[in-house]
Simulated assay, not measured.
Amino acid sequence: MLTFEEKLNIIEEFPELEKKEISLGRLNFHFEGSLYDKKIVVYRLHPNGNGFVYAGEIEDYPTDEKGMVNIKDMNKEELRSLIREAIDSLSLSPAEKNPVMEEWLNKNDQALVLMREEDGFNVYAEEQLEGTFNSYEEAVNFLEQEGFSRL
């Protein structure tokens, strides 16, 4: 297990993170460049070596219900890699992380394009916006109800 000082040295390798002292000698490290409401990357780093890293925006990474990963027993490489992934995940929009661009056709060979943009999904007929949806499932449901199927 890494000591508090070793963890602190690793965390401070990331110039994007800003150290904030909180109660009981604990530290938080904020990423002000986050595209999300979440700005704290390292949470409650304690002098006993316990602490957490926010990994809630990293796809398929096991976290608790708050998106946190306990770093108490991590080695140098694991901690460094997790922090890099956490910062990167907060630096990309959902559309950049998981792009979607699909062409859908109906029986009359009319085409629509489904695209993920920012926090939603848009359907276009050439350059004209046909619909905006909160989820992929909503967009697909619309397209299927209109008689379109994915290529």
Rank of each mutant, 00 (worst) to 15 (best):
T3R: 00
F4S: 02
K7E: 02
L8S: 03
L8R: 04
N9R: 13
I10C: 00
I11Q: 02
E12T: 15
F14D: 00
L17C: 01
E18M: 05
K19Y: 02
K20I: 06
I22Y: 02
S23R: 14
L24M: 07
L24V: 04
G25P: 01
L27G: 04
L27M: 07
L27A: 03
L27K: 10
F31W: 02
E32N: 15
G33I: 09
G33C: 09
Y36H: 07
Y36E: 05
D37H: 10
D37E: 11
I40D: 09
V42D: 04
V42S: 03
V42G: 05
Y43M: 03
R44V: 07
L45K: 02
G49D: 06
N50T: 15
N50W: 04
N50R: 13
N50A: 14
G51W: 04
G51M: 05
V53M: 12
Y54R: 02
A55H: 06
G56T: 08
E57R: 14
E59H: 12
E59L: 13
D60L: 06
Y61T: 10
Y61R: 12
P62C: 02
T63G: 05
D64K: 13
E65H: 14
E65T: 11
M68W: 09
V69A: 10
V69D: 01
N70M: 07
I71Y: 06
K72M: 08
D73V: 10
K76I: 02
E78D: 03
R80F: 11
L82K: 00
I83S: 01
R84M: 09
E85M: 11
E85S: 11
E85I: 00
I87V: 13
D88Y: 07
L90K: 05
S91R: 12
S91F: 05
L92H: 10
L92K: 15
S93T: 15
S93A: 13
P94M: 09
A95T: 06
K97Q: 05
P99C: 01
V100F: 08
V100W: 11
M101E: 15
M101Q: 14
M101F: 09
E102W: 05
E103P: 00
K107H: 11
D109F: 11
D109E: 14
L112C: 01
L114M: 07
L114S: 02
M115L: 05
R116L: 06
E117K: 14
E118Y: 13
D119Y: 12
G120F: 04
F121V: 02
F121G: 02
F121R: 08
N122W: 09
Y124Q: 01
E127G: 07
Q128K: 14
L129G: 01
E130H: 09
G131W: 08
G131C: 10
G131V: 09
N134C: 06
N134D: 15
N134Q: 13
S135C: 11
S135Y: 09
S135I: 08
Y136A: 11
E137N: 14
E137L: 11
E137R: 11
E137V: 12
V140C: 07
V140R: 12
N141T: 13
L143C: 06
E144L: 13
E144Y: 07
E144D: 05
E144I: 13
E146T: 08
G147V: 11
